[in-house]
């Protein structure tokens, strides 16, 4: 479905592509959810609540940027939870030891880049399925975190810049949703206008064809996975500022939920179709669902079940495979 991004097709074909990939569906669902939530509880529409929801959406949305790029190539990144945890703890510990915030944040970003590179090597060079490979990376990073912290919850000082980015205000607007909006804009432009964006879709659609067109598809994977590693780190840094602390397992809630946001937003889990516009709606839907489930006093167990079922239902709708026997 690269036709929606390359050239300028007619309005009708754009519209049909829009509904086919669930972007429209996800925005309709979002509006319905908001209406239901406001009818159930009018305080839901208060500016304070909208700000609080946007704040939480920022972490999920930023992590979902990386996940969108990776899923567009037909892969998935399961190393997010401990990549996020390890880099955040590293940043807070380095800052606590007296390094400047530039060094601390730089080290965290470097972790994200390295993790992305290793993920890309496994997928692009050794041709392993990213699900298994990044799961192994996740275990490796969990171990690295345990060794680095000796299994103790790290005591951490948070740089004031990080606090400002996460919970600060700029003329009445919270800063972190602005950060998310900026990164979203960059992502949408890259996907729609740049060569790299088109190569992402092409890799997901037909990698051998892209390779035969003279593109080194390995570099496309490097771009996608490094972006995902960086997004996980940025999400983790903002989360650290929001919670004013780092803790072991802080990333565990940020694996399935961003993936759910991407799938709800209509990106094909097999790659090649979709985009970040849908993921934004998916992120907001996921955040709304989470808060509705919390209001309904449904615990972690219920949330796990609900999100698992939603993912299966949406994949059944959008991304069924051809019959193996056809």
């Amino acid at each position: 479905m690269t036709s929606t991004t390359a050239g300028s097709p007619s309005l009708a074909s754009r519209l049909s592509a829009f509904t086919k990939h669930g972007v429209a569906v996800s925005y309709v669902l979002l509006v319905v959810l908001i209406v239901v939530a406001v009818i159930l509880n009018p305080a839901f529409a208060s500016w304070a609540n909208v700000k609080a929801q946007l704040q939480i959406a920022t972490f999920i949305g930023i992590i979902a940027i990386g996940q969108t790029l990776v899923i567009l190539t037909g892969q998935i990144d399961l190393s997010v939870p401990w990549n996020l945890t390890f880099s955040s703890i590293l940043m807070a510990t380095l800052y606590g030891q007296g390094y400047g915030f530039g060094v601390a944040i730089g080290a965290a970003l470097l972790v994200g880049i390295s993790v992305g590179l290793i993920n890309a090597i496994g997928v692009a060079v050794f041709r392993l399925h990213s699900l298994v490979w990044t799961l192994g990376m996740n275990a490796l990073l969990e171990g690295a975190t345990m060794v680095y912290t000796n299994g103790q919850p790290p005591d951490s000082t948070i740089p004031s810049v990080v606090r400002f980015l996460a919970v600060g205000h700029l003329g009445g607007m919270p800063v972190s949703p602005l950060v998310w909006a900026f990164l979203s804009l960059v992502t949408i432009l890259v996907l729609a206008r740049s060569r790299f964006g088109r190569f992402l879709y092409a890799t997901g659609n037909n990698e051998p064809a892209l390779f035969l067109s003279g593109v080194d598809t390995r570099l496309v994977y490097v771009g996608a996975f490094v972006a995902s590693g960086l997004c996980a780190v940025i999400g983790g840094i903002l989360l650290t500022g929001y919670a004013s602390q780092t803790y072991l397992g802080m990333g565990n809630d940020y694996l399935l939920v961003p993936i759910a946001a991407v799938i709800i937003g209509g990106t094909n889990i097999m790659g090649g179709a979709g985009g970040y516009v849908g993921t934004i709606a998916g992120t907001l839907i996921v955040v709304l669902l989470q808060s509705i489930l919390s209001i309904a006093q449904i615990g972690q167990a219920g949330k796990n079940i609900v999100f698992g079922v939603i993912i299966i239902a949406l994949v059944l709708l959008y991304a069924r495979e051809a019959r193996p026997t056809d």
């Binding site: 993936i259 796990n304 994949v315």
Partner: peptide, 27 residues
């Protein structure tokens, strides 16, 4: 059933059911 008749990639099915089953275990 989801893999064979739902025609979803096994890896996606079992990633989602991983959360569903561990949710039931927690319940």
């Amino acid at each position: 059933l989801l893999v064979a008749y739902g025609r979803i990639q096994p890896i996606i099915v079992t990633l989602a059911t991983l959360y569903v089953y561990s949710g039931f275990a927690l319940l």
